[in-house]
């Protein structure tokens, strides 16, 4: 056999042997990994692992246990799944207790999402306290100075995302002075006490149909006598964001009034005060009834919350 043919046979044999070996070891009888750990799971299984660990924490409140279950995973996996779960639960209007548990865990794991702000004890500033200013006798002008907490210290800034982001319309100014009139104007009732906020529920829900008006949600907070309550912090949350307003900053609409600009096709939750108690969940804009041939348009909502 000539040397060149010998080399060719040798080379072909080598390549064939290598190919057959790889087919056998990769396809026919590959290495079987039976002792894997969560970090090696496929992405969707990893996320489900995090979800399971977090739900277990909701059930047993054992922080050490959940941390050990999440230890082997990348922080990014944990953050992403936990954030998604919180947003899903907020949008679904789950109980405040569950959401607080989730928020506590998120804080412990250094995960943040705007939707959880309303449930985080430390992040929600207290309800602004309105101190009734005694009316000066010569000129009866009342000055309403919101306490420093009225400044939105933790107001989440809606980040540009693919989902429509409502833009908050009001900017709480440090002070506002009702237009001076001869009559004693806005008479602010004493600051609302937590028990009153705890007793609030949805008393009235009215669709506002005014063509050409930008879609919004009006919230009116009333006391036992039906009077408007100023200085109450109202939260509007949705799956990936939150917004806050304080009643009474548009005195021409009444002391208990606050509003939010909103977008269509988003489910909103309305909560009041630092309690974070969701009072209205799954609130969406709906089309207004129109006559045949008229162009359809979307209505706004007016919600009255009273004890």
């Amino acid at each position: 056999m000539p040397p060149s043919l010998r080399r060719a046979v040798f080379t072909i044999g080598l390549v064939l042997g290598l190919a057959l070996g790889l087919v056998y070891t990769w396809v026919i009888n590959p290495v079987r990994l039976t002792n894997t750990y969560p970090a090696l799971l496929r992405l969707d299984y990893r996320h489900d692992w995090v979800r399971l660990a977090v739900l277990s924490y909701v059930a047993d409140g054992d922080l050490e246990r959940v941390q050990s279950r999440l230890d082997s995973l990348e922080k990014e996996d944990v953050s992403e799944s936990l954030r998604a779960l919180i947003e899903e639960y907020v949008a679904a209007g789950r109980s405040p207790e569950t959401l607080r548990e989730l928020t506590t865990l998120a804080e412990a794991l250094d995960v943040n999402t705007p939707a959880m702000l309303v449930y985080a004890d430390a992040t929600v500033s207290p309800v602004p306290t309105l101190t009734p200013t005694p009316l000066p006798s010569p000129t009866p002008t009342s000055t309403f100075t919101p306490s420093p907490t009225a400044t939105p210290t933790k107001t989440p800034t809606p980040t540009p995302t693919s989902t429509p982001t409502p833009v908050h319309t009001f900017t709480p100014s440090p002070t506002f002075t009702p237009s001076p009139t001869p009559t004693p104007s806005p008479t602010f009732t004493p600051s609302p006490t937590p028990p009153l906020l705890q007793r609030l529920s949805l008393a009235e829900k009215e669709q506002l149909c005014s063509r050409g008006q930008s879609p919004h949600i009006e919230v009116v907070i009333q006391d036992e006598d039906g009077g408007g309550l100023p200085g109450v912090e109202v939260w509007l949350t949705w799956s990936d964001g939150a917004d806050r307003a304080v009643t009474g900053l548009k005195p021409e609409r009444g002391p208990g009034y606050a509003d939010f600009n909103v977008a269509s096709d988003v489910a909103y939750t309305v909560s009041v005060g630092e309690l974070g108690m969701p009072l209205v969940t799954g609130l969406r804009l709906e089309p207004c009834p129109v006559e045949e041939g008229e162009e359809p348009f979307t209505g706004s909502w007016r919600l009255v919350l009273a004890p």
Binding site: T25, P30, L33, T34, L40
Partner: peptide, 18 residues
């Protein structure tokens, strides 16, 4: 080569392999 030096790598495992 196939089993030790350059084995099939498993990064997308299922919970059954845990």
């Amino acid at each position: 080569i196939g089993w030790w030096l350059w084995p099939v790598t498993y990064t997308n495992t299922s919970p059954s392999a845990l």
